[in-house]
Simulated scan of single mutants.
Amino acid sequence: MYSVAAQIVVDRDMRILNVSTGYSGGYSDSHVLKLSRMYTEVVSNGLLDGQSLLLHGTEVPLYLIGDLGYPLKTWLLTPYYAQNRSAWEEAFNRKHGQVHSIVSMTSHVLKRWGVLAQKMRVSLKMATATIGACCVLHNMMFDWNEGLELEDYALLHSEQPLQEPEQGDVEIDYEIGRRIRDALAMEVYGQT
């Protein structure tokens, strides 16, 4: 039996846009991210290139959100983890948590396939194929509106433990990502 790490990217409607799996369950989220094809598509092939928005003097490009297991990047925004957060940082974390709960909901729905809710006694290759197949079936069910009513799934938001993200490669990307996150946080706070 293997522990398998899986990274999924979902949209606001719980459709799975990308899945990366087949890595040992011991891999950290940031390590899986760097090994994923999505990372290459974003960093090297401009997957998220597009129109940006100017907020509080900062250019905010298209971005994804991730939990504290991921590194803060210009295109991947994580919550604030400092113990003493400002009101606008708290507002950002609340909004981030609401949006991130869609990932938790999607994970919960995937486990309804049964095979993903229990230990799989198969090879890593077969476990990876099974996860991929369940993701495809998940999207097909949503496309066909067959038995998946969002009311059935309460938003599963739990506070992420406050811990500092991994300090592997500290890049200039982090500083720009911090400015982007700060600009969004000020915008979110201004709307509350």
Rank of each mutant, 00 (worst) to 15 (best):
Y2H: 09
S3T: 08
A6V: 13
Q7F: 03
V10P: 04
D11M: 10
D13P: 05
S30T: 14
V32R: 01
V32M: 01
L33W: 10
S36G: 05
E41Y: 07
S44R: 02
G50K: 02
G50F: 02
L53I: 13
L54N: 14
T58M: 02
T58S: 02
E59A: 00
P61D: 00
P61V: 00
L62W: 01
Y63G: 02
Y63T: 04
I65T: 12
D67S: 07
G69Y: 06
L77E: 09
Y81L: 06
F92K: 01
K95C: 11
H96E: 12
Q98Y: 00
V99S: 09
H100R: 15
H100P: 04
S101N: 03
I102G: 02
I102K: 08
V103S: 06
S107G: 11
V109P: 00
L110A: 13
R112Y: 02
G114T: 05
V115P: 01
A117K: 04
A117T: 05
M126Y: 03
M126P: 00
I131G: 12
G132N: 15
A133L: 15
A133C: 15
L137G: 05
M140P: 02
M141V: 15
M141F: 12
F142G: 13
G147A: 07
Y153T: 14
H157K: 10
E166V: 04
Q167M: 07
G168L: 13
D169K: 11
Y174I: 08
A183P: 07
E187Y: 15
Q191S: 15
